[in-house]
Design a protein around this nucleic acid. Sequence first.
DNA 1: CTCCTTTTGTTCGACGTCCGAACTAATAGG
DNA 2: CCTATTAGTTCGGACGTCGAACAAAAGGAG
Lengths: 373, 373
Amino acid sequence: MTPLPSEAHPAGPATVRRHNRGLVLTAVAGAPASRAAVAAHTGLTRGTVSSLVDDLLADGMLVEREAPRGGRGRPANPLQLNPSGPCGVGVEIGVDDVGACVADLTGTVRAVRRVPSDHRRHDPAHGLRRAADIVRDVVAEAGLPVAGVRVALPGVVTPDGVLQRAPNLPRWQDVGVAELFGSLVEAPVSATNEADLAALAELWDGQALRDMLFVSGGVGVGAGIVLDGRLFHGAGGRAGELGHVVVDPGGRACTCGGTGCLETVAGVTALLRAAGAADVDELVREPGAALDVAADALGVALAGAVNLLDLPAVVLGGVYARLGDALVERVGAALRARVLARPPVRVLRAAVARDAALRGAAIGVVRELVGAP
Amino acid sequence: MTPLPSEAHPAGPATVRRHNRGLVLTAVAGAPASRAAVAAHTGLTRGTVSSLVDDLLADGMLVEREAPRGGRGRPANPLQLNPSGPCGVGVEIGVDDVGACVADLTGTVRAVRRVPSDHRRHDPAHGLRRAADIVRDVVAEAGLPVAGVRVALPGVVTPDGVLQRAPNLPRWQDVGVAELFGSLVEAPVSATNEADLAALAELWDGQALRDMLFVSGGVGVGAGIVLDGRLFHGAGGRAGELGHVVVDPGGRACTCGGTGCLETVAGVTALLRAAGAADVDELVREPGAALDVAADALGVALAGAVNLLDLPAVVLGGVYARLGDALVERVGAALRARVLARPPVRVLRAAVARDAALRGAAIGVVRELVGAP
DNA sequence: CTCCTTTTGTTCGACGTCCGAACTAATAGG
DNA sequence: CCTATTAGTTCGGACGTCGAACAAAAGGAG
């Protein structure tokens, strides 16, 4: 029997405390609850909850509201996540702009800003300085202490925050974004793939599906895989490459070296060609044949993924969301014809339209804070 | 922000103890180690390790070997998993036989037995009684205390051990195998899909790949997905349905309702037809055109899965393993042509040939024991 | 042979955490 | 005004880890 080479850490009283702090915070995250309610919900003693809450109040993670109306007995003191507590900052490096956004502990966005920045002409250091500038702006606007910063990047990102490869950002090869940006803003910085964060935004801010495939249609076709309420990154951080699933083995050659990849049939450039449209706005107005083409291809590609992972739902985002319910309907039909699961797969349109990755990044920081502070 | 409806349990001193017990056991699982070595490896204090080891010795999980040879200083007392400690029992319900097997704490198989049993003619209760009989036999032969029993089933199994649907066992619909079998043998019983357990056997007993797709070729084509050293079941326990990935959209109709599924091209019956063979033995001797057909179809289907999940390795089992290295070579080539990952995907032949599911079931029980007893 | 060094394993007090139960606080209803 | 009810706090006990001191068992130097 081969050993697990896992690097597990020893547990002690501090581990327990952290775990239970997280329990209390997640119990309060949904709706305000009293200490007694938290105790009943988590299984902890009222005494223990009191002690934990004292800590959390001192740390500014919780606040006590005054709403002493109710039935018999001593009125309860509802606790809630402190809207003025530590916040998460999301940053997005787009192809020709940068954005930043602040989310408070409750997950509501308190400030957003986006400015143009041509990353094809300038080098990464320049782009990151621009980003740091608007981070300062939004943080000043929100006026909250910063717990952490997360950067959304359009490419392959390693767990330690290095952008390895970005198809549309040729100058950003092997850039240690987390480290570089950490020296520009005084806060812990992490970095993640942009499509993955958009999927998380959909999970947290949109429809709460613990297991889903979030398909982001653009020039490429990416997917964020959410399993059991958590994002799945894959062994090398590259999971979600849906664009190169083969949907037409004899079809057009793809940049990846294969033929008939989903991207060559249902990517934005292919859809523009199918619709005879000049730009995305025109495509959305008069999709024509593009709708059928995209639906068929997506049906084939998604069926494989859904069968393989036994996913109960698929969410269409990016261009696909803009193409409207007609596409959702057709993809759903194509999918149900090929998938055997009962109950049948649900196909939905993305609910978080604007700044999905940005919101996902900012909320992700506070979610981590609430989960295990 | 939507709350996580997770049912997390409170932590206490007992939780810590359990966790650290697991740490000690996994530390000695690879090679025997002294208390001091365990302390250094896990980060626990020597004192704490001593206390934990005392417990584990008393429980019969560990034994102290005598090998006091070495350099300076007081000689170390090597500890190892107790080969006479609690064991795991694996049971397999095949189409026309039942099997049972005992694995000790170190993961070595101590007894195996397999007898014919026609599950198409007799009902589940009869089959389970046969299984219980040979469980008694192998347990008597091994002479070890039984920690748990795991049943491998050829179909969809829910987390609580109910066999929902088994294509080749029409009488076994919605059978609560775990519960029924639990009343026949006095030990905790769980049940899992047979292909999944074969994948785990490959993980533990064969090549130790923390992330892989194990493809099991039979009448259907199933897959066990191993992510980060653990099996991925999916939201509904049905993950791994590789057989109905579409590899030829215009192809033959499949029982699932779709067309051109992998199963219709690279399943056993399709391969027999392609090779013009009467049975599997003949197919293995003279595969002919079947080799190319299978390799192409697997290449297309696996490329999608590998891209989607960013898997570093694929292991071919079942009939595919019997078809030899020629198939492995061709699938590898087809796959590398379509997958962009670096380093390239590895394609391997299954190392655990006989009784894979049986071994996976038995070893799975003891692995769980060692992980968090 | 004796003493010193080195490494292993044990013992003991201090600290942190949770639990259970008793106690105080605050409200509604009779 | 008194009682029942619910909320929150306080305190001792139990459990577990840590750190340091201590005992044990070898090899090597003089």
